[in-house]
Design a protein around this nucleic acid. Structure first.
Lengths: 240, 240
DNA sequence: GCATATAGTGTATTTAGTACACTATAGGTT
DNA sequence: AACCTATAGTGTACTAAATACACTATATGC
């Protein structure tokens, strides 16, 4: 490689980035947060929020910084997904990307069904939600990363209660069931779902009801993090 | 950072390595392949086989190169585990390691119970098997990587038939059961295990028997890769 | 007060998991 | 040759979990 810049090494080093597949939930579909690129390569194309890992920050700090700048929101749930290192994944040169996926409680954000504007973050890049079934052409190998994240998410909700992260802190069981149906792409039996979910023992029923038009109000529930942590320590697992 | 070397960048870049947790099976325990370091830091300490990712090879090529040089064996099963990027994990400077785990059919290698010598690979480094319960002090954060790989392996054999990779191509059901018992750390019922394993439909019973001393000979079986691939495509999954 | 839309509930059936004990067959021993 | 020993190999009854399935309850709007 060249001789530009002040940081020199005896061997060529790949660039290292983190990219994050941020999932959100609209009324009836799963969405991914995408950023419109304002420079080459892939100018104008949509891509995942992400960026270079700074030398003085660890991977999680990198992801947190990126998430906060794009969503203006803290304490987002995220976990590492996979590391992508194909030789040709970035035309600018060898780049290794450590991919993460994140789940945001989309009620905290302005979202519309087509993919509303979310924020005018640094550099005036557009940031929007896109339905996972109606993605535009994507920059780099970001389509692959999203497919990988979807697969992980779909299989993980079957044995860990992470789906709650996509909902507001108080939610109805019908809403939770709808979320599972959207993720799994099939309908679930109402009685069996409720039986299963409640038997996990990580939901607290609240003395509060959600009024939602001309019908019977639905009871609100809350995910109890500490009950969950306790079950995890006891080696109890979860299945849906 | 400094100005030494011919590869210069406008921003500092972390070094990128791959490290590989290679599992093997001795008579009655699970082993990990370790390499004794012949330079600082952690001189003389044991560590995982691994090294810097070359700029012109992708991650899998890197791992394959490392595996072949340390085991002198091709076509080893491996998969990506996790990427470790803590700031202080390498005293020489910021280093990100993409960890893999590999399963080798240990019958192909000279192995003894204490951890026999395996090969005198490049640089005369010692390479040895170490029982996972009797590991020496390890270099870097390699203890963490091994713990992570163990956890992954233990949970993965419950839903994917990867355990066969640790056995010779022809094996008895008793040996397979022993393998599961070693990995899971508990005894399994012989009849239930056989029922379960055979009902997966990925084993072919051979017209061959293993004579093993003064007792009834045991039938040999072979893992049928193509049956497995077919089941995977049909969405069938596996559990033990 | 009636229509409508969603919330909420229990039981019977099917399937999968678990617990459990004896016979078969080889080599070695007397 | 008879028997001892060590491992291979087999079936069934019981228990727990998953599934299939239909009606009543309660709010609003007309």
């Amino acid at each position: 490689m060249g001789h530009s810049g002040a940081f020199c090494y005896p061997y060529a080093r790949p660039a290292v980035t983190v990219d994050c597949v941020v999932f959100g939930l609209s009324e009836d579909r799963l969405q991914v947060l995408l950023v419109q690129r304002d420079e080459e390569p892939f100018l104008q194309h949509w891509g995942l929020p992400g960026g270079f890992v700074r030398i003085e920050e660890d991977l999680e700090e990198s992801v947190r910084r990126e998430l906060e700048s794009k969503t203006r929101c803290k304490n987002i749930y995220f976990e590492q997904l996979y590391t992508f290192g194909a030789l040709d994944r970035d035309p600018r040169g060898r780049t290794i990307s450590i991919a993460y996926f994140a789940l945001v409680n989309s009620a905290s954000y302005p979202i519309d069904d087509v993919g509303g504007e979310l924020s005018q973050s640094s550099g005036h890049k557009q940031v929007r939600w896109h339905g996972v079934d109606t993605l535009p052409q994507l920059a780099f190998d970001h389509g692959k990363l999203i497919a990988c994240a979807l697969e992980r998410l779909r299989s993980k909700i079957m044995y860990r209660p992470i789906g709650f992260e996509l909902l507001p802190s108080r939610f109805t069981l019908s809403r939770l069931q709808k979320l599972y149906e959207i993720l799994l792409g099939r309908e679930l039996d109402k009685r069996n779902f409720r039986k299963k979910i409640l038997s996990m023992g990580v939901l607290d029923g609240l003395e509060a009801w959600e009024q939602n038009g001309a019908q019977r109000p639905a009871q609100l529930y809350r995910f109890n993090q500490s009950k969950y942590q306790q079950k995890l320590k006891q080696g109890d697992f979860f299945e849906v």
